[in-house]
């Protein structure tokens, strides 16, 4: 304390400010690796895009693939199911938006916008009820589509919410048929 008087305590010259700024930049840079390490790692990201062989899926059958930790329902629908889905008018739908990641956010929830492009028999969607995340049962419920056992939401053969507490149609992930028998999801 004795020698403190020789300093000018109010002085805030450029050097001090610059040094403080450098320290702040350093601290902020060091923080980033500690935050970024929480993001999905390379092994997880490598599985963010999967290819599924659907050659074994006959008409009226479906398989469940696991993608990003969620079930993906891949179903080759019967003509009756397609017909049932197509005849529904948009006015009857609880959620009129397609919820299709391959289309715009405001695409209407027609069956054409829900099914695979150019392959209207195929329905590829995230098999998670939009209510609270349960996995609905297939080919059941009032609309012969999907029925969620948790809280009674029912979906039609196009995966659209028709009754029950769920607010939205089941989501369609980004996907593409890269051949007649292989679909790439993600």
């Amino acid at each position: 304390m004795s020698a403190n008087e020789t300093l000018e305590p109010t002085r805030r010259d450029f050097l001090y400010i610059a040094t403080g700024a450098v320290a702040a930049v350093g601290a902020a840079s060091v923080a980033w690796p500690f935050i970024d390490q929480m993001n999905p790692d390379a092994a997880t990201l490598a599985l963010a895009e999967i290819e599924v062989d659907v050659s074994q899926v006959a008409v009226g059958q479906s398989i469940t693939a696991k993608w990003r930790g969620k079930p993906i329902f891949i179903r080759q629908r019967t003509p009756e199911e397609i017909e049932a889905a197509k005849t529904v008018s948009l006015d009857e739908l609880k959620d009129p938006v397609a919820r299709n990641a391959n289309l715009g956010a405001d695409a209407p929830a027609t069956d054409e916008n829900r099914s695979a492009k150019g392959k209207e028999a195929w329905l590829v969607m995230v098999g998670v009820c939009t209510h609270l995340g349960c996995i609905p049962l297939g080919q059941s419920g009032d609309y012969n589509g999907w029925f969620c056992p948790c809280h009674g939401s029912t979906y039609d053969t196009s995966g659209r919410i028709r009754s029950g507490p769920a607010p939205e149609n089941m989501a369609i992930p980004a996907f593409e048929f890269i051949s007649d028998t292989t679909v790439r999801i993600g």
Partner: peptide, 10 residues
Amino acid sequence: AVFAGMLYIV
């Protein structure tokens, strides 16, 4: 290195 130099001057 730069930061150490600045701190030394400070």
